[in-house]
Amino acid sequence: MPRTDLLRVTVAAVALFLVAATLALRLDDYLLYVVTLGAIFATLAVSFDVLLGYTGYLSLAHGALFGVGAYACGILTAHHGWPFWAALPAAGLVAGAAGAVIALLAFRTRGLYFAVLTLGIGLIGHQLFLVLAGLTGGVGGFVGIPSPGRPDWVPLDQNGWNALLALALLLATFLAAQLFVRSRLGAACLAVREDLTLAQALGIRVGQARLAAFVFSAIFTGFAGALFAAISNFVAPESFTVLGAGFQLVALVVVGGMGTLWGPILGAALLTALPEALRVASGYSLMAYGVLLLVFVIFAPRGLASLATAGLARLRTGAGFRAAPAGERRP
């Protein structure tokens, strides 16, 4: 892909970040918190899209990797006195290392077996958060995680600073993912997704590509976990269950649009805002969530991204548009 295209994406992403940050910082603390959570889940979704959208492997262990990053940050900052800025990269590396181990084990399988194997790993991870109470606080949760340090020269309160960090992490993750998918490894990942046997026959180093995608995804999932822990000041195992965080990631990417990187950001924005918007009728919140998933899988399987792209194309040409039906392959 031409370098100018990457430059254009970068400029657009930075511009959108600046707009989002400027608008967000005008919001009250509650809406700012919703934006902060949305940005963290968007970071998770983008990093997950690198694996699911670009290699086609469905991991259900990412909820646990999110927890690994969160607990690593909590332990390093609260128990060992590390500053947040040292704990953040360390948490990413710990999650990346855990991701590498999981990947080496899980890539012995494919398809449904890969999903089931990572499901098992996700369950083990969640149980470990409960059992290792000395480190994690067990079922009672990990209390007293320090907030991300705010420099004196920053003219924001802690809530504004948290939101800015979450948006900045999303920007960094998105740009890093753009670089990754445009690299030789990214191209190899696409080949793996489209036809594993053909990729192997062409001499593409399939194992290396898949491993790199998984580790990349795990590192940024760990970053998101670390920031989530520092912003919440508290984490508990129930935030990192397979049925909770694990499947939620899948939903964010499917609703947003797999293999686009920007679609999952839309998915995260929608699926974070929806439960908050439905607070007054929270009994219907989960139902609305389920209906949305059904609608997208049946009528727009390539997610919000495909709807947005088709809408833009329609505006340009004046022609009608339709979302791709289920089962239609990407170009």
Binding site: Y33, F234, A236
Partner: peptide, 10 residues
């Protein structure tokens, strides 16, 4: 917990 924190912020 996450929903609870959000509710408190509201």
């Amino acid at each position: 917990p996450t929903v609870g924190v959000s509710a408190l912020k509201k």
